[in-house]
């Protein structure tokens, strides 16, 4: 599926000049769909390398990696949402997120670019159309002919169905 080279514009995401705050999005692809997440939640983008599996974890949790001394779990979004094919090669991209005080990585088909969306370019999400629960969709963005699904990544990653954060059951 992911024929396009992962021509990552890696230098852009780190660009700190974000005057419009939440209106800059990092876009990535999962299968044929294009998604966007708030740039401020992104810590860095790196390749996919040696991962340590975690026993009895759901299939989409690939395991943990060492990110400069921190143990970071890696989630394959392609498996989680059954989009794209879960292949791992030197083009596989991991977006390291910093959400809810935690660091985690997501595997996607490819990172496209960083785009700025004005308010008029953002539409509320309709009730269907994506495998991702509408609850986690902030809206749809339009850039020329492209449609971006804007995800509230923080909400999604902290949700119980990701199983990333121990729900305090006491």
């Amino acid at each position: 599926m992911s024929q396009e080279q992962a021509a990552i514009t890696t230098s852009n995401p780190v660009n700190p000049h974000t005057n419009q705050m939440a209106n800059e999005f990092l876009t990535f692809r999962l299968g044929s769909e294009e998604y966007g997440i708030e740039i401020l939640k992104v810590q860095e983008i790196r390749g996919y390398d040696a991962i340590t599996q975690i026993a009895n974890a759901p299939e989409f949790i690939k395991g943990v990696v060492n990110l400069r001394g921190i143990i970071v779990p890696i989630i394959d979004m392609r498996i989680k949402f059954q989009l794209g094919s879960a292949t791992y090669d030197q083009f596989t991209v991991v977006i390291i997120l910093n959400v809810a005080g935690r660091v985690m990585g997501i595997v996607v088909d490819g990172v496209s670019d960083v785009i700025t969306l004005g308010l008029e370019q953002m539409r509320p999400a309709p009730g269907l159309g994506s495998v991702i629960d509408t609850e986690y969709i902030m809206g749809l963005g339009t850039v020329d002919e492209r449609m971006l699904i804007l995800i509230d990544i923080e909400k999604m990653m902290s949700s119980s169905d990701m199983g990333l954060i121990e729900q305090t059951v006491n």
Partner: peptide, 27 residues
Amino acid sequence: IKSLESNYRRVQGVSGATIMGDGKVAL
């Protein structure tokens, strides 16, 4: 010993993780 729980959750049968000489994580 590094905590798995700081970014992930408790895993049954595993008390933590560590980083080996080659940079890999070992549970």
